[in-house]
Amino acid sequence: MKNKRYAIVLDTKKCLNCKACTVACKFENFVPVGDDTYRIWVTELPLQGKFPHLHQEYQTSQCQHCENAPCEKVCPTKATFTTPEGVVLVDYKKCILCKACMTACPYDARFVSEHHESVEKCTFCMHRVSEGREPACVETCPVRVREFGDLNDPNSKVSRLLSSRPYLQLKPEKNTRPRLFYVL
């Protein structure tokens, strides 16, 4: 039996900018209210064109769960580690809060959590996944911008989406090999 390779595929063309995912994430993961404390976000990309010819897109994002994770490399205590499924996690008890991972992350996906007294970030809701549930952001989305699944399973939604549509990844020049795929 091959390992699972978890990934999220996003179709941000559908995104309504409704922020359901960001609020769901906060409750699910005990992320406190605060301007700097968030695991996921919905960005309004810059407006294109001039009135009345306009175009705008919204981009949902979070930790990219890089296969070549710079944050993991620079963590002095192995607090950041990658699971066999390719999920990058933080062992809160091992974090010394040196914040090297925060400077190393090209996606600004990490922040200091006073709740965990550690640096934290998106976990792909592994505590839910292990119970057979979807990550909270995936589940709550009105238009299912995100799909979560196993890249090693050819029949999974993520595999099928990636095989049928072109996609891009964020900051490919950093060679981080993210597990977040943005289909076009």
Binding site: P76, T77, A79, K94, I96, S118
Partner: peptide, 19 residues
């Protein structure tokens, strides 16, 4: 450092030599 004391023993028991 948020946890300077943690650092002391974690450098011994869980050092990441690529860091």
């Amino acid at each position: 450092l948020g946890h300077p004391f943690r650092l002391m023993y974690l450098f011994l028991i869980s050092p990441n030599f690529s860091a």
